[in-house]
Amino acid sequence: MRKQELIHLHSLLAQVQVHYEEESETEVQHDEYATLGVKPTSIHKSKTDHKDAVFALADGIINDMAAESDETRTLAAD
Rank of each mutant, 00 (worst) to 15 (best):
Y33M: 08
L75I: 10
P40Y: 03
A56R: 09
S69D: 09
I61R: 00
A58H: 08
R73L: 03
H50N: 02
H50Q: 03
D59N: 14
H30C: 15
V54I: 01
D52I: 02
E5Y: 01
K45M: 11
E25H: 07
D31R: 15
V54K: 05
Q17H: 08
E21Q: 08
E25N: 11
S69H: 11
Q15F: 03
F55P: 08
A53L: 04
T35H: 14
A76Y: 09
A76F: 04
D49I: 03
E68R: 03
L9H: 02
E23H: 02
Q17E: 08
V28R: 00
D52H: 10
T48V: 08
K51R: 14
K51C: 08
I61W: 00
L36S: 02
K39V: 12
G37R: 05
L36A: 00
E25V: 14
Y20R: 00
S46D: 05
S46P: 06
H8R: 11
E5L: 08
A34M: 14
I7Q: 01
S11K: 14
A56Q: 01
A34D: 13
Y33R: 07
S24I: 09
I61M: 01
A77P: 03
T35Q: 15
Q29M: 13
E71K: 04
A14R: 05
N63P: 14
I7D: 00
T41K: 11
A53Y: 00
D31I: 14
A53G: 06
D78H: 09
A34Q: 15
K45A: 10
I43H: 07
A34K: 14
P40A: 09
H10Q: 02
N63S: 13
A34N: 15
G60Q: 08
H50D: 03
A34S: 13
I61F: 00
I7K: 06
